[in-house]
Design a binder for these strands. Structure first.
Length: 901
DNA sequence: TGCCGTACGTA
DNA sequence: CGTACGTACGGCAT
């Protein structure tokens, strides 16, 4: 059966409805309605106007369900109005810079939503709206005009309603003819007459002094319109009459200027404005970039029946009769088939209940795993475990964990569409199969029968042919995506990276996750009590100092205490006031010596540690081991990340923090934990990539890197470099790999910007290759659009050519860092594959447990200590041929703490 | 309940 | 105004 889109539903409307929006005016309203501090991207791009406008648009689409939509913008500075009356809109403040930049973003969004935007040199948006509105009425349509410009009220009629923002952009007043009459006392057609008399300060059109809407309406009604009023001016008595006579010319000008032009020549007809299906892929990209997560969800959730173009999958789904699976698979022997598993994938605790196999040629089988006959189960297990039978999977690691719950293997994954998408677009936040399907296949994964939420509920498709139809659909999508993405991978030079690095790594990571690391629960319980006591002590002392109890974990309450009650000097400004972060509190303590600060800091430390310990205790599985999940598609640089729990951020810097590492211990049946880490891998990669002779020499000499560099920068002998000098150099060296500015360096080192700049200058004098390299990286990335690591892993940085300085400079820093951080990630991944392979090849029981970016943790079986140390050193050291040695330091011990060095 | 902002742990 | 992450909490909107 085919999965079909639901038809576009129309809310029983008899006449088409045209929605016309004044883009500029509504965006401007949004800009002032939403605090810009709360709406900007990570890169500093302000987005309040974009957000407000889009949210408003979403509401209108939902509530009004227009059949036709257009957004009109003002074009250029000058219009026929400014030509006739130079002072027109003359009092308007220059639009803020932060607003200007947002209009193109709004246009981008509209484009992805396939909404027509219109502008015409010399005219205002209102004129375009008046023109279209007039045409639409003639075509028998209803019209909704959404604008913050009151002049549009003249358009209101039986078929035309104006939505005018009362407050913000979400609260819109509906102006029907009755509403206009009610509010202004004149019919819509007379509104411009009234406005001419009253004036419009936002347009810099003065009105008749002393004449407000009430008087104006009275006159207009009495004399049948503005012409009548002006004709009768000599007879109007009183102060107001006098003013009117004095201002008659201005009033005539006002009336001429506020008349909407209804016959602007436009490149489109009303019929062309029919709502079109969204370009969902492009929308995802724009919304990703703008970091509008919820708004995007709202939009997509709101109009699920949108997207007319995408077709469903034509899929013949069978649930083979008992014993028939083998022949189904045999008929497709050697062909690449897609596997999709319905189940849960917690490492070591996974389970699978259904599995679909699709052949990419409209055929799929769906298997209810609990109901498989022994024959079928055997056939399935053989095929799944046969590495010679190529498969495509979306997220092979999760599938492996789920299948493991049924004792089923998964081998021979030739394409993982999740990894492939990640390699092609590493900056994306999610690689949801449904989105990829739309994006690459132009097919909607959703079917009437889907909604398989993995909770085991049987999901009967409409024609009743197969349960878990959604799983089959997903398998079909994976089959096709596999082919499409292979080509995209090739285009992006990432074929090898997938085949030889990321895919083989899946098995290694799955193994590490399944194994987990043993934890000493009793020890952790003890730590928790210690830290909890420290928290309580610190809190009590803090309360005693200020004479009341506050929530020390609340930055807001802390601000009140520090800056209101204790009147301390203000720290750095943040969105919600002034920062209370540790660095600022420490700084305040230096200056004020106020004991409250010390207690707060102690409280923070202790509660953080307690919280970490509590999280770990919660994560201990029944067998006493903690299992993390390594995310392979999150970090845009190519690093892994670790979640649930994150074992890549276990404290190490402070003594109290290090105690936590004592809780990670060697498991039963094993001898010791072994840690192996690369020393200064990022600096070594910088040396290699830059080819700087001085830096390469530093590493080859075997001397302490920072002392060596310090000696050259300060012009002294290596052993004369002071500790202070060394730490400055260290900060700068690492900073360079992050795109550090002299300003940033000065702040970090507490020195003047001039000093910092001089320090950097001295550094670059001695290590000129570094400067050349760093400049070259950004240049090349700007040219090609991406950076590349040693293994060719790309990161695309379109913002390198942005007009927005903040965004551009952010992208530049990313470009500086991505090749370095990413190459380090490449190397340790290569090393992991090597270590894993050697352990297996040499028949060792020892195993990899953790990776922490530049460190591997292994569990060593009795008698294997020397062999493992040797092979780990070899594999890590030989991960790639660099022009500098890759030093590896190794430690062993009964716990992670003892094995550390 | 869910989201945002702040704070802070790691490399 | 230094990159890359994940987690917990408070506070607020819903």
């Amino acid at each position: 059966m085919a999965a079909r889109l639901a038809p576009v539903t129309d809310q029983a409307r008899t006449r088409p409805l045209l929605l016309l929006i004044d883009g500029h005016s509504m965006a401007y309203r949004a800009f002032f309605a939403l605090p810009v501090e709360n709406f900007s991207t990570r890169t500093g791009q302000p987005t309040n106007a974009v957000y407000g406008f889009t949210a408003m648009l979403a509401n209108l689409l939902r509530d009004e369900a227009p059949t036709h939509v257009a957004v009109a913008f003002d074009a250029g500075r000058t219009t026929f109005r400014t030509e006739q009356y130079p002072a027109y809109k003359g009092t308007r403040d220059a639009t803020p810079q932060e607003f200007q930049g947002q209009v193109p973003l709004i246009r981008e969004i509209l484009e992805t939503m396939r909404i027509t935007t219109l502008q015409r040199e010399g005219f205002e948006a209102d004129d375009i709206i008046a023109t279209l509105s007039t045409q639409a009425q003639a075509d028998g349509m209803d019209v909704l005009v959404c604008t913050g410009d009151r002049d549009a009220l003249q358009l209101v009629g039986d078929d035309v309603t104006v939505l005018y923002p009362r407050k913000g952009v979400s609260d819109l007043v509906r102006f029907t003819p009755e509403a206009v009459q009610e509010k202004y006392g004149v019919p819509p057609a007379s509104y411009p007459d009234l406005a001419a008399l009253v004036g419009e300060s936002s347009d810099n059109l003065p009105g008749v002094p002393g004449v407000g809407p009430k008087t104006a309406a009275k006159w207009i009604l009495a004399h049948g319109g503005l012409d009548g009023v002006l004709a009768a001016a000599p007879t109007i008595t009183g102060k107001a009459g006098e003013s009117l006579r004095a201002c008659a010319d201005q009033v005539r000008v006002n009336r001429m200027l506020n008349a909407a032009v209804r016959d602007v020549e436009l490149p489109v007809a009303v019929g062309d404005l029919a709502a079109r299906p969204w370009d969902r892929e492009a929308m995802h990209q724009v919304f990703d970039a703008l970091e509008f997560r919820t708004l995007r969800e709202r939009l997509f959730a709101m109009v699920p029946e949108e997207v007319g173009e995408a077709e469903g999958f034509q899929l013949d789904v069978v649930s083979p009769a008992a014993g028939a699976l083998a022949s189904w698979l045999e008929a497709r022997h050697g062909r690449r088939l897609a596997v999709e598993v319905a189940g849960t994938s917690a490492p070591g605790r996974g389970d699978a209940w259904a599995l679909a196999v699709a052949d990419g040629a409209d055929h799929a089988v769906v298997l209810e795993l609990a109901e498989l006959s022994p024959d079928d189960e055997g056939a399935l297990a053989r095929w799944l475990g046969d590495s010679a039978q190529p498969k495509s999977v979306h997220g092979a690691k999760d599938a492996m964990h789920a299948l493991a719950g049924r004792g089923l293997p998964l081998a021979g994954v030739a394409v993982d569409t999740l990894l492939a998408s990640y390699l092609c677009h590493p900056d994306q936040r999610s690689y949801d199969l449904a989105d990829l399907s739309i994006r690459h296949l132009r097919r909607e994964l959703r079917s009437e029968a889907t909604a398989d939420d993995g909770q085991g509920a049987l999901d009967l498709s409409l024609d009743g042919t197969s349960p878990h139809h959604g799983t089959a659909l997903r398998a079909a999508a994976v089959a096709e995506l596999g082919d499409v993405l292979e080509e995209e991978l090739a285009d992006r030079g990432a074929t090898q990276l997938l085949r030889d690095l990321e895919l083989p790594l899946v098995d290694v990571l799955a193994g590490m996750e399944r194994t987990g690391i043993a934890a000493d629960r009793d020890y952790l319980d003890g730590l928790e009590r210690e830290f909890a006591a420290a928290v309580a002590d610190a809190a009590a002392e803090a309360y005693a100092v200020i004479g009341r109890e506050v929530n020390l974990g609340s930055p807001k309450q802390l601000q009140e205490v520090l800056f209101d009650q204790l009147q301390m000097p203000k720290t750095k400004k943040i969105k919600t006031g002034w920062t209370t972060d540790a660095a600022s509190l420490a700084d305040l303590f230096e200056r004020t010596q106020h004991p409250f600060l010390a207690h707060v800091l102690a409280h923070r430390d202790a509660s953080r540690l307690r919280q970490t310990v509590e999280g770990l205790i919660r994560s201990i599985d029944d067998d006493g081991r903690i299992r993390t999940t390594f995310q392979q598609t999150i970090a845009a640089t190519g690093r892994l990340s670790s979640t649930d729990p994150n074992l890549q951020n276990i404290p190490i810097r402070t003594e109290a923090g290090r105690q936590i590492r004592r809780a990670f211990v060697v498991g039963e049946g094993y001898d010791v934990l072994l840690t192996a880490d690369y020393s200064q891998i990022e600096m070594r990669i910088m040396a290699h990539l830059s080819g700087d002779p001085g830096l390469i020499d530093a590493f080859r000499s075997g001397e302490d890197l920072h002392s060596y560099v310090g000696a050259r920068v300060f012009g002294v002998a290596t052993d004369e470099v002071t500790a202070a000098q060394r730490s400055k150099i260290k900060a700068m060296s690492y900073g360079l790999a992050y795109g550090l500015s002299s300003f940033g360096l000065s702040k970090q080192l507490n020195i003047s910007v001039g000093e910092a700049a001089a320090l950097m200058e001295d550094y670059f004098d001695r290590f000129g290759g570094v400067r050349t390299y760093l400049a070259g990286v950004v240049d090349e990335a700007r040219r090609t659009g991406y950076t590349a690591t040693i293994l060719g892993r790309r990161r695309y940085l379109p913002d390198l050519t942005s007009d927005n300085r903040q965004r551009r400079e952010m992208a530049e820093r990313m470009a500086l860092n991505a090749p370095i951080q990413g190459s380090a990630a490449d190397l340790i991944k290569v090393a992991m594959l090597g270590v894993d392979r050697r352990l297996r090849d040499e028949g060792l029981r020892s195993r990899l447990l953790l990776q922490v970016h530049d460190e591997l943790v292994l569990e060593v079986a009795p008698g294997e200590r020397d062999a493992v140390e040797q092979l780990v050193r070899q594999e890590m050291g030989a991960a790639a041929p660099l022009s500098v040695p890759l030093d590896v330091s190794v430690g062993v011990g009964g716990s992670w703490h003892e094995a550390g060095h």
